[in-house]
Design a protein around this nucleic acid. Structure first.
Lengths: 155, 155
DNA sequence: TATTGTTATACTCTATAACTATA
DNA sequence: TATAGTTATAGAGTATAACAATA
């Protein structure tokens, strides 16, 4: 055990970051008429294009039943459409509407603004040092999670 | 706009940290038979001692009705007790049981272990530089949230 | 027989509103 | 009149299980 006080302060900062980021994202989603889960779903569509509900369930790591509910809600609120799959008549393809595309594009822009807010005040050295420390930390955390949750995907 | 690629990488790391921390905490709570909300509640009791439900509602920033449900569940699962308030007969005092105290003490120990995992591989210089960068980032994020949510408490 | 998505059911967290008991 | 906590009701996310249509 080395520097308990510094460690405690540093961990407090990390925990505060997590809380603030969760708040910030939830708030930003709410402004668009979305929840975190619905935002996650259309974010996947934004990056992967039209997808079956099966694929969405795997991407969000939730049950097929849950995807049915999320897609229902996103259809009702005009973010996505359900269309028949061209070759597999069991499946449906979920696609972004124009509104859904506009919102996900705005989300991407919001990420760039957030990156600017976070990093444009740092010198190149400061940024490098911060990212190095953060990367090591994230890697150690990812390893621990993989160990403690044997069923999880070991990407 | 300065270094878009470095910024994007750095933001990705931050976002990954948030996801992993959320997963890690949820997993750790589940091992103790808790949810995030219930863990938050007993964490407040651990630090503030026996409290009225009113105080807990303010600490967790949720409705009084919600606290009733959380305390019901925590009483059923043996983490807390409800007792009459000594002077105000409208109020009830929520206290940790022995089991609740043991679990919160373990949570505290788990935090120390997490801090060790995160920081014991960093040199003092690396830690200092990481914390400096993180502190600035957290401060800018907190300021932005305060601006965008005028009703929020300006601690 | 396996897969896709649905309906049925249930649990958790969240909220507002109406109500009781007490201050 | 105001406050502490409950009951009533509702919406959202999550799960498993049973079932339909299709592969």
């Amino acid at each position: 055990m080395a520097l308990p006080d510094e460690y405690a302060t540093a961990l407090d900062r990390v925990l505060e970051l997590v809380v603030l980021m969760n708040d910030d994202m939830a708030q930003s989603f709410a402004r668009d008429g979305l929840t975190a889960s619905r935002a996650h779903l259309i974010w996947v569509l934004h990056h992967q294009g039209p997808s079956t509900q099966r694929v969405l369930a795997e991407a969000l790591r939730v049950s097929a039943r849950n995807i049915t509910g999320l897609v229902d809600a996103l259809v009702d609120t005009g973010f996505v459409t359900r269309e028949p799959h061209p070759t597999d008549r069991r499946a449906t393809l979920v696609s972004l509407t124009e509104h859904g595309s506009r919102v996900t594009a705005e989300m991407e822009k919001g990420q760039h603004e957030m990156a600017d807010l976070f990093f444009s005040d740092m010198s190149p050295d400061e940024l490098d040092c911060f990212v190095t420390g953060l990367t090591g930390l994230v890697n150690r955390l990812r390893d621990r999670l993989a160990l403690e949750r044997p069923g999880a995907p070991h990407v």
